[in-house]
Amino acid sequence: MNMLRVWPIVCQFGVGALLCLIGIWGGLRGGYLNLKTTEDRRLLIILIAGFLLMLAIVCFFTFLAPNWANGGTI
């Protein structure tokens, strides 16, 4: 595995996770983000789902799609 291709994912999603955690912590602290309400729980789920979706897209275009050279199978 070419680590020069892996480090960007580690770096971006590592620092990204930290930023997300700081934001969620900032919401939970003081009760502004109240996980007892449906709306706030849904927001948290969307946040995590968005993060995972981005990660999946990036992994696809790093480990799979570049090998799909001629329109055949990956």
Partner: peptide, 9 residues
């Protein structure tokens, strides 16, 4: 996306 929680919360 990573800035989104800080932004909205």
């Amino acid at each position: 996306w990573f800035w989104m929680p800080i932004l909205v919360l």
